[in-house]
Design a protein around this nucleic acid. Sequence first.
DNA 1: AAAGTATTTTTAGCGAACTAACTATAACAT
DNA 2: ATGTTATAGTTAGTTCGCTAAAAATACTTT
Lengths: 141, 141
Amino acid sequence: MNDTVDCDIRQSLDRISSQMRRDYSESLRELNLYVGQDNLLYRLWLGDGITQMQISEHLKCEPPTVTNMVKSLEQNGFIYRKRDEQDARVMRIFLTDKGKELEQPIEVKWKQQQEKLLKSILPEERLLLRRLLKEMESNLC
Amino acid sequence: MNDTVDCDIRQSLDRISSQMRRDYSESLRELNLYVGQDNLLYRLWLGDGITQMQISEHLKCEPPTVTNMVKSLEQNGFIYRKRDEQDARVMRIFLTDKGKELEQPIEVKWKQQQEKLLKSILPEERLLLRRLLKEMESNLC
DNA sequence: AAAGTATTTTTAGCGAACTAACTATAACAT
DNA sequence: ATGTTATAGTTAGTTCGCTAAAAATACTTT
């Protein structure tokens, strides 16, 4: 009985996240970006020159994933890599001008996606929803 | 102001879905399955002998994705493919015994994942949450 | 100083999901 | 009957994300 409700929640979350990913992926193609790369850039807008290890921790993904994302972003001219002078193992990642210019357009896309997702949901409900999502987040840790 | 709340919701959903995927992926490895394959099998438990096109529509993914998933599931002996007798373009997909046997173990995994995700959330809240998620789902269509 | 250990990144190889382009078959139209 | 169009599926090539294993550098310990 309650299992059905809970299972709907799991499946629903699954459908929402895949649909969001699909939608958003398409939308990002207009900026010549792939899904996930916007999150990496977002971290750099907060402050660049950080290491791949730090990016990996922030994005909660494994180091090889960062290597590949960084390679793709570098090839497309959004970032550049510089070896650390103190520690030759470390690569520090910086934004190019082209990478800096994406900040505004991506924020616009984020707001569009938010509004599409939440359009029928009232402000009080949004607050409640956020609380429940945060709880689920910590349940997963 | 409200943008911050909404943005948290988008990001929160994003973090939950990646964490769920990561967790779940690991858990499915015990059954020798990859993430997403359980949804394909679930559709077959409802009734097999359907075409790849129907699977593609049900899973809301593109035909090449189905080709690859089906190939992998066939190689691991969970399903088999049979060309349609009326229409030689069509492939019909059937469960093997090994595939049928996964139904119970996967339901167990689903319930485990649900419970992990929702453990701190009360029944009334779950009902509300489900309603809000369903709304978001239709907002995305 | 040399050997062993730890850290950061890369390489290789897997599946998911995508698009674009292709093959094979079927259906329709002239 | 032949040519065009539509449908089903596959192939090739991309990125994301993973694990396992390797390479390069730094640190520690003897």
